[in-house]
């Protein structure tokens, strides 16, 4: 039946359609032709991911356990230190390979967070300072957060192949927006009076940013980092679709084979990792003074050691307990 549909003003979309799918194919062809260029871009990312994974996998397990425990203690107090160590112990005994899987996942997540910070933090500062940058960035960030990951899996695979690096790229697309948004928010929340005072004393824009705006925005920025980190973790299953190893892959394989055990090991592993990383970053968001001491080195394992050192230098000046005359 060769009856060409007539244009109908009441049902215009039956006849008028843009060939978006064909255009997308065009983009795909273009991507294929320029693959080598994108492969070059991959190199630095490869380096970060591979080295992180190498270090994590080749450090003795007990040492990793102790380091994470101490880090958690330093960042968030001894309770979180104990919690983190205990949870990682559980993660290690969860299944045959679970420690190795966990370290692989941690490597991918850590690399993703590093990439997010490297790009997201400056972008966040910029959109905090410039209304125009904010206006341009907002729809892009909305897109990054809402577009289904499966849509950009394909072009990423075409451009970068499969493996950990494209996995990191996919994760970064989804996880970076909160860091940018909250960094911008933190900078915008800084009191204009403080900024004016800095200016009145002759500070340059750079000095205002480094000495006032960033330090005052730190709690908000840390909240953004925390969100970014959790979103990174939430992407590990999707990223395993393009051959990222680790817990995500376990979940995926468990699903494919209806292997409940595998899926549970992967799932619980991801949850444990999320709790540990979340508590540590939440601890970072609280300032020293909220935890009742004046300098970061007065708390946690560092403070513990310093307090036991013979006092020779003025590293820890005696604090006059002044809470009088309010």
């Amino acid at each position: 039946m060769a009856d060409e549909k007539q244009f109908d003003i009441f049902n215009p979309f039956d006849t008028v359609n843009f060939p978006v799918e064909d255009w997308a194919d065009g983009i795909k062809d273009w991507a294929f032709e320029n693959r080598s260029f994108f492969r070059e871009l991959r190199a630095p990312l490869d380096w970060v991911v591979n080295n992180t994974e190498f270090v994590l996998l080749h450090t003795p397990q007990t040492v990793v356990l102790i380091i994470v425990g101490l880090l958690a203690w330093q960042a968030a107090g001894w309770r979180v230190g104990v919690l983190a160590t205990a949870l990682l112990l559980v993660m290690g005994v969860l299944g045959e390979q679970s420690w190795t899987l966990g370290m692989t996942t941690l490597a991918v997540v850590a690399s993703s967070v590093i990439v997010c910070v490297v790009f997201g933090f400056p972008l966040g500062l910029w959109s905090g300072k410039s209304d125009r940058a904010q206006a341009v960035m907002r729809p892009i960030l909305d897109t990054m957060q809402t577009i289904p990951a499966f849509v950009y899996l394909i072009p990423v695979v075409i451009l970068f192949g499969i493996g950990n690096v494209p996995g990191v790229i996919v994760t970064v697309v989804f996880a970076m927006p909160p860091l940018i948004r909250l960094t911008a928010l933190g900078v915008r929340q800084v009191s204009p009076h403080v900024v004016e005072a800095m200016r009145a004393f002759g500070a340059t824009n750079r000095q205002i940013m480094i000495k006032a705006e960033i330090p005052l925005a730190v709690p908000t920025i840390m909240a953004g980092l925390n969100q970014t980190l959790l979103l990174c973790l939430s992407m590990v299953v999707i990223a395993s679709l393009i051959s990222v190893k680790g817990f995500g892959n376990e979940v995926l394989r468990g699903m494919g084979r209806l292997d409940m055990g595998k899926a549970i090991v992967g799932g619980v592993g991801i949850v444990i990792m999320a709790i540990v990383l979340d508590r540590i970053t939440q601890g970072l968001a609280r300032t020293e003074r909220e935890r009742g001491c004046r300098h970061w080195y007065e708390q946690g394992p560092v403070g513990f050691v310093l307090r036991r050192l013979p006092k020779k230098s003025g590293i820890m000046p005696a604090q006059p307990e002044q809470e009088e005359s309010k």
Partner: peptide, 22 residues
């Protein structure tokens, strides 16, 4: 030159203090 003038010749005190809390 303006920044130098502000930094060396003029001190300012504000109603809302505008101290750096950290």
């Amino acid at each position: 030159a303006l920044r130098r003038l502000r930094a060396s010749k003029i001190g300012m005190v504000f109603q809302n203090m505008a101290l750096l809390p950290h």
